[in-house]
Amino acid sequence: MALRTPVRTEAPRGGRTARRDRRPRPSAAGARIWTWLTLPGTVWMSVFFIASLLLVAAISFGTTDQLGDPRFGTNLGNLQALTDPAYRDVMLRSLGFALLTSVICLLIAYPVAYAVALHAGRFKNALIAAIVVPFFANYLVRMYGWSVLLSDDGPVLRLLRAVGLADAHTKILNTGFGVIAGLVYGFVVFMIIPLYAAMERMDTSLIEAGRDLYGGPLRTFWFVTVPATRQGAGAGVVLVFLPAMGDFVSAQFMGGPNQIMIGNLIQDKFFEGQDWPLGSALTMALMAVLLIAMFGYLRRARKDEAEATR
């Protein structure tokens, strides 16, 4: 190499190899701090979350003793009980309720997110805050207020009766529709937020171009807005489906004995029936449905992403 450097005073060649060997790695030593920071949270989550989930799985193979306390075992009875028509119906109903809730949330959230994201002007941020903030208010209190509103002599039914849309026998509470109304009220925000974010990101000139191409606003919405926000909608469906599937409050406050969901069964096995192994098996069944849903969503999302980057 042709370097015009000042003349070397000495060339310390002899000591080089030795020095390299005993040199501690400064950046490696510094990086240990990140391990120490990661460790406490990881250990905490491993013990109190992962281990406890594994315990649920283990207990679902267990039995109860005379006192009703759970015992470990290799009992397949609890898992077999899941195929019992009574339990199977509840699980199918939960699935149906959660799916319907997702669809209804989608139908509500699209126009709301569209109006707020694209037509609210400078009130956009205030409006989206006005949607988000109430959802941090206590879930029980909100659900209670909702049940009062929809009760048999509550304002909604009185209004509907007054305009002739309902008669004296029309009910919302204690019906499946009531339970779904509760779930929608509880979780619709999880649909609005991702959709709103997707619409905000959307290039609005697309809509203008869509007007040119497709004419009517409905066709434009279907051919332009919906495809552009599909990922947001997908995320929203998952975010609504997961808590709706596991909910037991809505069925209690808004439904009757014929509308119970899997969450109510689990609650019952742990608090009233004292059959923890069966409760654990039901919990595992719930978790399995959710993991399948989640897995399906992630695969779909990854496929979409791959197509988008292609």
């Binding site: 080089r16 020095r19 040199r23 400064p26 510094g30």
Partner: peptide
């Protein structure tokens, strides 16, 4: 950054291992 090989000297002192 940590040299993979060689040494860094400041005013004649080897500081390769110093943070």
């Amino acid at each position: 950054a940590d040299p993979t090989e060689g040494a860094v000297l400041l005013s004649g002192e080897d500081v390769t291992a110093l943070p």
